[in-house]
Design a protein around this nucleic acid. Sequence first.
DNA 1: CTTGCTCCTCCAGTCGCTGGAGGAATTAGC
DNA 2: GCTAATTCCTCCAGCGACTGGAGGAGCAAG
Lengths: 169, 169
Amino acid sequence: MSGATSEQAVPIGTASRLSGVKVPTIRYYEEIGLLRPPARSEGNRRHYAGAELRRLAFIRHARELGFEIEAIRTLLALQDDPGQPCEAADAIARARLTEVEARIRSLMALRQELEQMVASGRHGVVGECRVIEVLADHGQCAHPHHHPPAVPGRAATAGPPRPKGRRPG
Amino acid sequence: MSGATSEQAVPIGTASRLSGVKVPTIRYYEEIGLLRPPARSEGNRRHYAGAELRRLAFIRHARELGFEIEAIRTLLALQDDPGQPCEAADAIARARLTEVEARIRSLMALRQELEQMVASGRHGVVGECRVIEVLADHGQCAHPHHHPPAVPGRAATAGPPRPKGRRPG
DNA sequence: CTTGCTCCTCCAGTCGCTGGAGGAATTAGC
DNA sequence: GCTAATTCCTCCAGCGACTGGAGGAGCAAG
């Protein structure tokens, strides 16, 4: 909207360089409907102009912050319709913040355990290796960072490590 | 090694409950060679005894700590051979610790940005929504948490968000 | 003896890309 | 004008680490 110097359309490679999003990823975003199909040249090449480039930068930034594709889809829809109430966008961001906070807590617990593992200094052989030992015996963990994996009689049916997909941020 | 009360073989469902690893996941571990194929009953059912159950617990714990399958493969091989030097295991654990530390730093930067996004209080419409605004304009980020996505003339060919695969810990 | 549970194998799908094959079009240099 | 290099096109398979469903066999209890 404001003073963008270059409002001309650029090919996909340039869009990639400008946004930091790889070429196949840009095409992928188009395929899944995050990015609208851009205009094509005579020779069938995609050409991206200001609006699409801004959209791409938006997506990139949101991905860096770890928003899922579906969340970004919602955010983009909201952006396209500036009269909408802002609550939905706020809610998405707050949900993401909660996730990030939980993840930080979890990682800090893991860090502590890993630190204790590697802190015991160099010892010759695996037979007396603290790393292997601690991995083999969960009871040696100082703190209950993750749910106890259940040892003796019966156990929790619930969650193994984590569900699925990657998590960028 | 020490006093395991039940040394009898159990079926896969029980092994799952004991270890906290889902049944299909146990079969998957066997398929990719992390777990050795256990003995089978007459009716072709898997039966897990002490050693395999311990191996499964080891894998589970290592996965919780975010070790990749290939790292776990190495750790298991080391465990099987207690005369080996411990360095390899230490190195794997230290590498993982470094990863976790980097991830914590990155997440804390994201948290900060997300906090700023949501901190601006409730405002009516998307048109003046800080969340959307900040996402659209990377320049509004307080700190350079992620590499600048390249705006004007030329830009970095290098890395978008993150490479691949999931990351549990 | 039937009901209901667990188990078997096989295979496709998840998420968010990534990269290769095979070919067309554009651009750069001579 | 011609060639060579680069960029682009589409299609499709693969990554990691599972997850879950279909369709069927086995087994233990009532």
